[in-house]
Design a protein around this nucleic acid. Sequence first.
RNA 1: GUGGCUAUAGCUCAACUGGCUAGAGCGCUGGACUGUGGAUCCAGGUGUUGGGGGUUCAAGUCCCCUUAGCCACCCCA
Length: 424
Amino acid sequence: MEALNAPRGTQDILPPDSALWVELEGIIRRVARSFVYEEIRTPLFEHSELFQRGVGSLTDIVCKEMYTFADQGGRSLTLRPEGTAAVARAYLQHNMANRGLPQKLFYLGPMFRYERPQAGRFRQHHQFGFEVLGAGEALVDVEVITVAIAVYRTLGIQRFTVLLNSIGCRNCRPNYLAILRESMTPHLDKLCSDCQRRHAGNPLRLLDCKNPSCQPYLDQAPHSAGNLCLDCRSHFQEVQRLLDLIALPFQLEPRLVRGLDYYTRTVFEVTSPDLGAQNALCGGGRYDDLVATLGGSPTPGVGFAGGLERALLILVGRRAMNSTPQPAAARPDVFLVHLGPEAQEKALLLSQELRQAGLAVDQSYDTRSLSSQLKIANRKNARYTVIIGENELRRGVAMVREMALGQQTEVTLTSLLAHLRTKG
RNA sequence: GUGGCUAUAGCUCAACUGGCUAGAGCGCUGGACUGUGGAUCCAGGUGUUGGGGGUUCAAGUCCCCUUAGCCACCCCA
């Protein structure tokens, strides 16, 4: 029988690393609270159609990276590759607009994409995301970007760049796409095969091409931000003005288009030079047509999602450099050592009582020698070891050993809790 | 989906151009210490050398296939 490993592109998060994840998740929740976003949890799988309609059936994510399967009832389901479509779906399904607008929501959890694993890229990875539904103001775009930055600043990540662009709306984009397509038509035979395909189907993605031989032509391509309608232009200008107002540096990136079809107007990414080839810490933008695409009434939306693994990659790298210690493993306040069957029973009763009082209590489970039980207490880094032997039991006392000092005192069982408490 | 590099004990790594029973440190378990941890000493490894096939008198070492990891393309978080 061959041993089974975790599937390709997935990973086990073991202690003590799991403590780091809890810490990171805590920071995200704290930022959410400070900006007053509420948590939403949606299923890990959805009807495949949600992503086809929401994310776009021509996108790489949908057409070649989804984990899609038929369930026993013949439904086509897909492990969620991203979070925004499901949030929009839930917003619509539960008429969340009735709670008042805008709805400010955040989520945290695993996403699934069938991709070749690489530095900072996995088949199951974890994202946190913030979404605002029902508000179209530029102020909200700026708040969402600020939330992302707040998370990274709280984590102590200093080196990052905010990339910003606007890709227009349903009114002005068709016009821009026509201009873009036309500008590239003379060079079509010199562009790569991907670009030729994009030229026909999804010209916006032309700007995303990294093929060196295409760059000379794409560099001359007209910019979306230069071909916006009046409303989109003033929205984009307002976003930039407000970012300047709060002194948040950003870089205009005319070639930033993002790989999901639901975006309109503002798109942004935060990248880090400390990441490697997959350098996006988070990405997002406005999606004013998404809810309508899913069958709801027109509802503006804006949000972003960031990768937990990538944030962690920078965090652990930085901590290694500063030789910051790993978060301490779960540490018992009290470790109970017992000698003999009666002492074992007393230890069981005592552990209940001490835990009831809020102490972290661990104990030995077998009847090994005092020496080896103390070794366990030591390895677990217990603050106090409470030793109950038959002698102590007869006299109604226990030995309380303060491990760091190697000192122990005799305490009556009735005053044990009070004694441990005064020691803090 | 494409390419490059890699795979030896739980971890980090040895093993001359193919050659004896594949070793070391750390960790882990037990003991010395039958009621006192950390230090010290001693003992403890059936590792399918990732898996499969091939070449050879002989393969951890060479060849092929495969799986996985890392890195890059692509795309993104």
